[in-house]
Simulated scan of single mutants.
Amino acid sequence: MLNLRLYMLQRITALLMAPLVFGHLAVMIYAIQGGLSAEEILGRTQGSLAWFLFYGTFVVAVAVHGAIGLRTVVHEWGGLKGTALELFMWAVGLGLFATGARAVWAVTFA
C-alpha cells in the first residue's frame, strides 16, 4: 500500500510541476530577451508573495518528487531496504526542500 501511495504522490507532484516548469522557462526567456540584470530581476521578486508562492510550491513538489524517485532507484539498484531506505528518502527530501527553500527565501524576501 505504501508503494501505491508513493507512486500516486509522485504522479501528482509531476502534474503540479509541469505547468510550473513551463512558467519558469517563460519567465527565464522573458528576462533574458529583455536584457534584465540580476539586480533588476531581484527588484521585481523581492517582497513578492506571488513569486514566493510560485517558487515555494515548485520547491515542495520537486523535493517530494525527487525523493520518491531516488528512493526507487536506490532500492532497485542499490538494494537498500526497510528503515535505511525510508531514512534515505526523508534525508534527500528534506535536503532538497532546505536548499530550495533557502533559494526561494533569498530571491523573494531576504
Rank of each mutant, 00 (worst) to 15 (best):
T72W: 10
G69D: 09
M89L: 08
K81A: 06
V62Y: 13
V74S: 11
W90S: 12
I68Y: 09
H75Y: 09
V62K: 05
G78D: 00
V74R: 15
F58D: 13
H75E: 12
V73K: 15
W90Q: 14
G56N: 03
V64R: 11
V73S: 09
T72A: 10
V73M: 12
R71N: 12
M89E: 13
T72E: 15
A61H: 00
A91R: 08
T57S: 11
A84V: 00
V74A: 13
V73N: 06
V64P: 03
G79C: 02
I68V: 11
G78H: 01
A63S: 13
T72Q: 14
L70K: 12
T83Q: 14
A67P: 03
V64H: 08
V62S: 07
V73F: 12
R71W: 01
G69A: 13
L85Q: 10
L80C: 04
V59Q: 03
G56S: 11
A84R: 15
F88K: 02
A63F: 06
V64Y: 05
A91N: 06
L70A: 15
L80E: 13
T57I: 04
L80T: 10
A61F: 02
K81D: 10
V59R: 01
L87M: 12
A67R: 02
V92Y: 09
E86I: 07
G79V: 04
A67W: 01
R71Y: 01
A61S: 04
A84W: 10
F58I: 04
V74W: 02
H75M: 06
V92L: 13
V62W: 05
Y55E: 14
K81I: 06
V60F: 08
L87A: 14
Y55T: 07
T72F: 05
L87T: 08
W77H: 15
A61K: 03
V59N: 04
E76M: 03
M89P: 00
G69E: 09
V73R: 15
L85R: 12
G82Y: 07
T57R: 03
Y55Q: 11
V73H: 13
V64A: 12
V92G: 01
G56L: 00
I68E: 06
H75C: 09
W90V: 13
